[in-house]
Simulated assay, not measured.
Amino acid sequence: MRILRVAQDIFPDKVGGAPYHIHALSRDQAEMGHDVTVLTVSNDQSLPQTEQRAGYTLVRLSPRIELFGNALFAGTVKYLRNAREYDVVHAHSHLFSSSNLTAAYSRVTDIPLAVTCHGLMSQRVPEWFSRFHLNTVGRFTYNAADVLFSYTALERERLRDLGVSSDIRVIHNGIDVDRFTPVGKTYDRITDATGPAVVFVGRLVEGKRPRDVLKAFQIVQDNIPEAKLFLCGDGPLRDKLEQIVERENMRESIRFLERVPYQEMPAVYRAADLFVLASRTEGFPRSVMESMACATPVLSTRLEQTEQVIEQAGQTVPVGDTTALAEAMSSMLDDRDALRKLGQAGREIVMREYDWSETVEQTTQALGTISTSTPSQQQVDSDQAEEQVIPAGSNTEHEQ
């Protein structure tokens, strides 16, 4: 198949679960023999507008305007005019104007369109605006899709309640279970510290509620003074969080790891005794599944998308309840045997239900059902691409 993927963010230009998902899916589909082009946005003039990366073609367009981190590409419509050169267009998330515009263009031209829902609510904008956008532009975008991918059956129900009538396929957000394992190197900056280690992984933004993690950890230290908290990530709240740590004289117990290269993330999870997430909303966070794959238990806020899975391998508490978060953190760190059993349970769940190779296979098969190319033409395209594709072991991509 010839696939045009439209995505505002892509790894490693941008870090995060969705950007990495888009990159890895494009990489692996290219390795399968498909011709993949990714249309994205970048204002970094040092990067080429077009490049070959990990077997797929990456096209960067300049942002024309940006609001709440949502960029409208300059030249998007002009590029979409060539969309008929592709068998299918795959857009990502209703939260980005590029996906909304792609949906509108697809409606007019009848180009086969797939859309992946990476979560219904945004962490970048006020909640009222996110709900308004979902019930208007978001619903339009999803109804324009010939096939819509959601991570969970619950998310599919929410989309139906929203009034989305498109064909919805539930495809789990899988993890590379060969990379994220309990056995292997651990992260020195964590293992060199004494005491139980708690790790937060994510962007330092309001939606992730990292201040709740700091406040809860202060309470934990009353019971477990030797415990350490490691914040892995960066973002606009970094300075404010550092000021809190300095003001509360917690520099020795709370440490900022900033951005850790993605290839080193398994070592971070392995070194931790507990992974904590305090978000007010999430899609199906990759960091949770990566932690579980490494047999590191999870403590998270109670989010309907993830609650059922996490409570089989950790604990959940109400959003914004820092006292409950602290109590759960303390009780989990106090029972080492229970932590070990929760970690093993998490690894088993990911191995059984969230293997990344199945995510790629199921997504590719679904795209094939709406593709304009015939099965015989797809085989011809695949055979031709196999002669050009970069072998899996020879590409030099840098992942994060």
Rank of each mutant, 00 (worst) to 15 (best):
L61Y: 06
S371W: 05
N395L: 03
A324H: 01
I244A: 10
V298P: 01
Q308L: 05
L58C: 04
L25H: 05
L154G: 15
L339K: 02
R336M: 00
A328R: 11
F73E: 15
S97W: 00
N173E: 06
D110W: 04
L204P: 14
I310W: 04
T359L: 01
D355A: 11
D176Y: 15
D273Q: 06
P391W: 03
M121L: 14
A145E: 09
M332E: 12
G163M: 10
G75Q: 00
D234S: 15
R160N: 04
V89Y: 00
A227S: 11
Y86R: 15
T301C: 09
G55I: 15
Q388E: 08
G235E: 09
L4I: 12
V260D: 04
A293G: 04
E264V: 11
E206Q: 11
D383P: 03
H94V: 09
G16I: 09
F256N: 08
R27I: 00
E226Y: 07
P19T: 02
N100P: 02
V125T: 06
T109P: 06
L39A: 13
V389H: 03
A271I: 13
A54F: 14
P318S: 09
K240G: 14
F132G: 07
S287C: 14
Q52W: 05
R189Y: 04
H172C: 05
L159D: 00
Q365G: 08
T109Q: 09
K228P: 01
F149M: 04
E242S: 09
A227R: 12
F11S: 10
M32G: 03
T191S: 15
L72C: 12
T364W: 10
S331Q: 10
R255P: 06
L257K: 14
V260C: 08
L95E: 11
T374S: 12
S46T: 13
P297T: 14
P285T: 10
M332Q: 15
I349G: 06
A103M: 00
E51C: 13
K208R: 08
V6W: 00
L39F: 07
I171A: 05
V288E: 13
D28V: 02
L325I: 01
G283C: 01
Q315Y: 14
L61G: 05
G314Q: 08
S291H: 08
T306Q: 13
V15H: 12
D28E: 10
A54L: 10
T374Q: 07
L325C: 06
V288F: 07
F275N: 13
Y151E: 13
G16K: 04
V268Y: 13
Q263R: 07
N173P: 04
L277P: 02
R81P: 02
L229M: 07
V350T: 10
V380E: 07
T281G: 05
S93N: 05
V309A: 06
A104W: 00
